[in-house]
Each structure stands twice: as C-alpha cells, then as structure tokens.
Simulated scan of single mutants.
Amino acid sequence: MSGASERTILLTGVNGQVGFELARTLQGLGRVVAVDRKGLDLGDLDQVRRVVREIKPSLIVNPAAYTAVDKAETDVDAAMRANGEAPGVLAEEAKRLGAALVHYSTDYVFDGMKHGAYVEDDAVNPQNVYGKSKLVGERAIAASGCDHLIFRTSWVYGARGKNFLLTMLRLGAERDELSVVADQIGAPTWANSIAVLTSHILAQGACGGQEWWQQKSGVYHLTAGGETSWHGFAEAIFETSSLAKKPLVKPIPASAYPTPAKRPANSRMSNDRLAAAFGLRAPHWRDALQLCMAPR
C-alpha cells in the first residue's frame, strides 16, 4: 500500500448507514473521496471499474451493498451483481493498483443452527439470496489476492436510513401494542461503532504498511458486545426513548411473522479474532444504543 502521506481513500455508499458514519471517522487518515450511488453504482460493473481507475485510491472502503433482504429473493441478479460481482471487481482493481480493500459482510452467511457464537472459520451455509450474494462477494475478494479486511457484522442500525430502530420508534408512536420476534438472537450493532472501529484499525494499518496488511488480511467478525432478541432490542429501544406513551411489546415466534427471506435463528458471532488482531472491541449493544439515542 502507498504511504499515508499520499493516501487517497475511496469510500462507497456515503448515504448509507455505515457509509455516512465512515465519511466522518475516516477523516485524518487520508484524502477521502466519498461517492454515493450516482457516483458509483455497484449494479454497474463497468462504472465501478472506471471510477476506481480514475480516482486511483490506495485504499477502498466499501460499505455499499444491496440490503433489501426480502426483495433479493426475487431480485436475484441485482443482489448478486451488487453484493457478489462488484466487490470482486473492486478487489481486482485494488490488486492492480497495489491498494487495499475494506469490505463489510453479514451474519447471514451462516445458517443459524449452531449453538453458541459463530467464529470466522465455521462452515458457511446461507439460507437466503442476500446471504448467498454476500458470500460470493467474500470469496471473490479472497480469490483476487488483494490486501483486504472483510468485517462481518449484524443487525445494523443507526439514526438515519431504514433500520429496526427507526421502524420501532415510528410504529411505537402510532400503536399501543407491537408484536416482535423473540426467537432470533444476535447483537444489534450501531453503524457508528462499525465506522469508529474500522477507522481505528485502519490507523494501525497506516503505521504498519505493507507487512501489516499481509499479516492481517482476512475475515473478522465485528459486532456489538452482548446479545438479545429482536423483542429484547425493541423493549430496550422504548425504555431508552422519550416517547410519552410506550407501547406494549409482545414476544412472538418467527413462525408467526413469515418473511420471503429466511433469517437465521442464531446470529451470534464471536469477536475474539478481531480483539486478538487489533486490540479492539465494539461496546455492548445497550451502551451503544444509549449513545445513539442520546439527545443531540
């Protein structure tokens, strides 16, 4: 990788939850060129290649993705192109430039049948198109031979975009009672936590140079500490919120709320490899939630 003094960082998906936060946390690590979907559409592979060649970054950070999990079941080609093929193109271009790539993946690469937290080397077995497309992207990046960090995260939320937190706050203001799935377990992860940890890790990389990237390249799990169900997350949201009248949150099984895409029952992932490699861990999900919802 090029030295920090001449570093240009290409950031995709700047209007997304994680991209929005990264545009702020990456400041100071280089010249950040942040692009939205108009500037770089993962569905247009020729444009992806062209933009990278024009900007010539020494680092590509790619939080952009096709994230409509249920829609992906019938929009297979678009999901595969954005989540599978486009990351492969970014990786090929990174390899050609001698650049590094940071990419984000998902707990949905697993089938959710394991007892306990998944580790990075556990067998993958995605149960929906979204998870399959993200796994294709992971494998394309690894096959390219470029220096890379792939961060698998889960249950991402933030103060903007479309996510569970904002949906609950909206519905909670409208209804007296909500039914929320209680038998899927994971770690709600604040988009800001992902961006801050990414930037801390990249600061280490800026000091470590090429040898650091060769040693650290690979897949890491990056989720909040602790675990809960969607029902538990919803209850915590309303406990933390300033809503005058809090809705009753009823627990229901996933079978009572069928969706086009099958979700894993267990989305827990161990962050031990990340901690061992970089000395960092995301905060507990409850602590992060309080920070996210703190009055601005």
Rank of each mutant, 00 (worst) to 15 (best):
Y220C: 05
P283E: 12
A275T: 03
W230I: 09
S229Y: 02
N271W: 02
R263N: 00
Y220I: 02
L243W: 01
G226D: 03
A224W: 13
R273G: 02
R286S: 11
N266Q: 03
R263A: 08
A276E: 14
P253S: 10
G279M: 14
G225I: 10
G279D: 14
W285A: 06
A224N: 13
V249Y: 07
S270G: 07
E235H: 01
H231F: 05
D287I: 13
P247V: 05
G226Q: 06
A256H: 14
G225D: 07
I252G: 01
K250C: 08
P251D: 13
T240R: 02
F278I: 12
R273E: 03
A234W: 01
R263I: 02
K216C: 08
F278T: 09
A224R: 13
G226H: 05
L274A: 07
E235Q: 12
A224K: 13
Y220L: 07
A234Q: 04
M269A: 14
G218N: 03
S255W: 14
G225V: 03
V249T: 11
G232R: 04
A276D: 15
S217Y: 15
W213P: 11
L274V: 07
S217L: 14
A236I: 03
P260M: 06
T240M: 01
K246A: 14
F233L: 05
P264D: 05
A282R: 03
F233G: 01
Y220V: 06
T259V: 11
P247W: 06
H231K: 05
L280N: 01
S242M: 00
N266M: 00
R281K: 14
K245F: 10
L274G: 04
H221V: 12
I237N: 00
A254L: 07
P253I: 04
G279P: 01
R286F: 06
N266L: 03
N266F: 02
A256K: 15
L280F: 04
W285C: 03
R281C: 10
P283I: 10
A256R: 15
R273N: 04
P253T: 09
A276H: 09
R263H: 01
A282C: 11
F238G: 07
S267G: 11
P258K: 08
E211W: 12
M269T: 13
P251Q: 11
A265M: 14
E227A: 13
Q215I: 07
G218L: 06
W213D: 14
L248T: 15
A244S: 12
L248C: 06
S255A: 15
M269I: 12
P247E: 08
Y257P: 00
R263C: 04
L280V: 10
L280G: 00
T259C: 09
A265K: 15
G226L: 08
E227P: 00
W213S: 13
S255D: 15
M269W: 04
Y220K: 10
Y220M: 05
G218M: 05
W230C: 14
L243C: 04
W212F: 15
P258G: 09
H221Q: 11
G232E: 10
